[in-house]
Amino acid sequence: MTTLPVGDLVALASGLVAISIFGILTRRNFILLLIALEIGMNAAILTFVYFAAFPQCVTAATCHPLTGQAIAVVVIGLAATEVAVGLAIVLALHRIRGTTNVAEATTLQL
Protein backbone atom coordinates (compact mmCIF):
# COMPACT_ATOMS: atom_id res chain seq x y z
CA MET A 1 0.00 0.00 0.00
CA THR A 2 1.29 3.35 -0.84
CA THR A 3 1.13 6.24 1.57
CA LEU A 4 -1.88 8.39 2.18
CA PRO A 5 -1.29 12.12 2.91
CA VAL A 6 -2.40 13.49 6.22
CA GLY A 7 -4.34 16.29 4.61
CA ASP A 8 -6.69 13.91 2.77
CA LEU A 9 -7.70 12.07 5.86
CA VAL A 10 -8.02 15.17 8.00
CA ALA A 11 -10.22 16.70 5.34
CA LEU A 12 -12.53 13.70 5.41
CA ALA A 13 -12.64 13.50 9.20
CA SER A 14 -13.24 17.24 9.57
CA GLY A 15 -15.95 17.10 6.97
CA LEU A 16 -17.70 14.31 8.83
CA VAL A 17 -17.44 16.22 12.12
CA ALA A 18 -18.93 19.30 10.43
CA ILE A 19 -21.80 17.19 9.07
CA SER A 20 -22.30 15.73 12.52
CA ILE A 21 -22.46 19.18 14.14
CA PHE A 22 -24.78 20.40 11.45
CA GLY A 23 -27.08 17.46 12.06
CA ILE A 24 -27.07 17.84 15.82
CA LEU A 25 -27.92 21.49 15.57
CA THR A 26 -30.68 21.29 13.01
CA ARG A 27 -32.44 17.93 13.39
CA ARG A 28 -35.32 17.76 15.82
CA ASN A 29 -35.96 14.05 15.63
CA PHE A 30 -34.23 12.19 18.42
CA ILE A 31 -33.20 9.30 16.17
CA LEU A 32 -31.68 11.64 13.61
CA LEU A 33 -29.81 13.25 16.46
CA LEU A 34 -28.39 9.85 17.39
CA ILE A 35 -27.38 9.22 13.78
CA ALA A 36 -25.64 12.58 13.61
CA LEU A 37 -23.75 11.68 16.78
CA GLU A 38 -22.69 8.37 15.23
CA ILE A 39 -21.28 10.16 12.20
CA GLY A 40 -19.12 12.26 14.50
CA MET A 41 -18.05 9.15 16.40
CA ASN A 42 -16.98 7.47 13.18
CA ALA A 43 -14.89 10.49 12.29
CA ALA A 44 -13.08 10.07 15.60
CA ILE A 45 -12.54 6.34 15.06
CA LEU A 46 -11.23 6.99 11.60
CA THR A 47 -8.72 9.47 12.94
CA PHE A 48 -7.55 7.03 15.60
CA VAL A 49 -7.01 4.28 13.04
CA TYR A 50 -5.12 6.54 10.68
CA PHE A 51 -2.83 8.16 13.21
CA ALA A 52 -2.06 4.78 14.78
CA ALA A 53 0.21 4.12 11.86
CA PHE A 54 1.71 7.59 11.80
CA PRO A 55 5.52 7.47 11.35
CA GLN A 56 6.37 9.60 14.37
CA CYS A 57 4.42 7.23 16.53
CA VAL A 58 6.10 4.13 15.17
CA THR A 59 9.54 5.38 16.11
CA ALA A 60 8.58 6.50 19.62
CA ALA A 61 9.50 3.96 22.26
CA THR A 62 6.46 4.59 24.44
CA CYS A 63 3.93 4.19 21.69
CA HIS A 64 2.74 0.94 20.19
CA PRO A 65 1.70 1.27 16.56
CA LEU A 66 -1.53 -0.55 17.26
CA THR A 67 -2.61 1.51 20.25
CA GLY A 68 -4.77 3.69 18.05
CA GLN A 69 -6.57 0.65 16.72
CA ALA A 70 -7.04 -0.70 20.23
CA ILE A 71 -8.59 2.58 21.29
CA ALA A 72 -10.77 2.47 18.19
CA VAL A 73 -12.09 -0.92 19.28
CA VAL A 74 -13.01 0.51 22.67
CA VAL A 75 -14.63 3.54 21.08
CA ILE A 76 -16.73 1.38 18.79
CA GLY A 77 -17.94 -0.48 21.83
CA LEU A 78 -18.78 2.75 23.60
CA ALA A 79 -20.59 4.12 20.56
CA ALA A 80 -22.72 1.02 20.26
CA THR A 81 -23.56 1.26 23.97
CA GLU A 82 -24.49 4.87 23.54
CA VAL A 83 -26.88 4.03 20.72
CA ALA A 84 -28.54 1.41 22.90
CA VAL A 85 -29.06 3.82 25.79
CA GLY A 86 -30.10 6.59 23.40
CA LEU A 87 -32.75 4.35 21.88
CA ALA A 88 -33.96 3.39 25.34
CA ILE A 89 -34.42 7.09 26.04
CA VAL A 90 -36.26 7.49 22.75
CA LEU A 91 -38.63 4.70 23.70
CA ALA A 92 -39.21 6.11 27.19
CA LEU A 93 -39.78 9.57 25.76
CA HIS A 94 -42.16 8.22 23.21
CA ARG A 95 -44.18 6.32 25.76
CA ILE A 96 -44.40 9.21 28.26
CA ARG A 97 -44.71 12.17 25.89
CA GLY A 98 -45.93 10.55 22.73
CA THR A 99 -43.22 12.25 20.69
CA THR A 100 -39.65 11.80 19.58
CA ASN A 101 -39.19 15.49 18.90
CA VAL A 102 -36.49 16.92 21.14
CA ALA A 103 -37.88 20.45 20.77
CA GLU A 104 -41.01 19.36 22.58
CA ALA A 105 -39.22 17.57 25.40
CA THR A 106 -37.85 20.64 27.13
CA THR A 107 -38.34 19.69 30.77
CA LEU A 108 -36.77 16.89 32.74
CA GLN A 109 -39.87 16.46 34.87
CA LEU A 110 -42.78 14.41 33.71
Binding site: V6, V10, S14, A18, I21, L25, A53, F54, P55, P65
Partner: peptide, 24 residues
Protein backbone atom coordinates in the same frame (compact mmCIF):
# COMPACT_ATOMS: atom_id res chain seq x y z
CA UNK B 1 -20.85 26.72 13.25
CA UNK B 2 -20.29 23.57 11.23
CA UNK B 3 -18.19 25.35 8.61
CA UNK B 4 -16.10 27.22 11.15
CA UNK B 5 -15.44 23.99 13.04
CA UNK B 6 -14.42 22.34 9.80
CA UNK B 7 -11.99 25.13 8.97
CA UNK B 8 -10.47 25.09 12.41
CA UNK B 9 -10.03 21.31 12.37
CA UNK B 10 -8.34 21.40 9.02
CA UNK B 11 -6.18 24.24 10.22
CA UNK B 12 -5.21 22.44 13.39
CA UNK B 13 -4.50 18.97 12.02
CA UNK B 14 -3.83 19.51 8.37
CA UNK B 15 -0.45 21.08 8.97
CA UNK B 16 0.99 17.86 10.35
CA UNK B 17 3.78 16.63 8.09
CA UNK B 18 4.15 13.26 6.52
CA UNK B 19 1.77 10.50 5.72
CA UNK B 20 0.79 7.16 7.11
CA UNK B 21 2.49 3.88 6.36
CA UNK B 22 1.04 0.52 7.22
CA UNK B 23 2.13 -0.74 10.61
CA UNK B 24 4.99 -3.09 10.03
Amino acid sequence: LAVVTFVFLIGALGQLPGSAVPAA
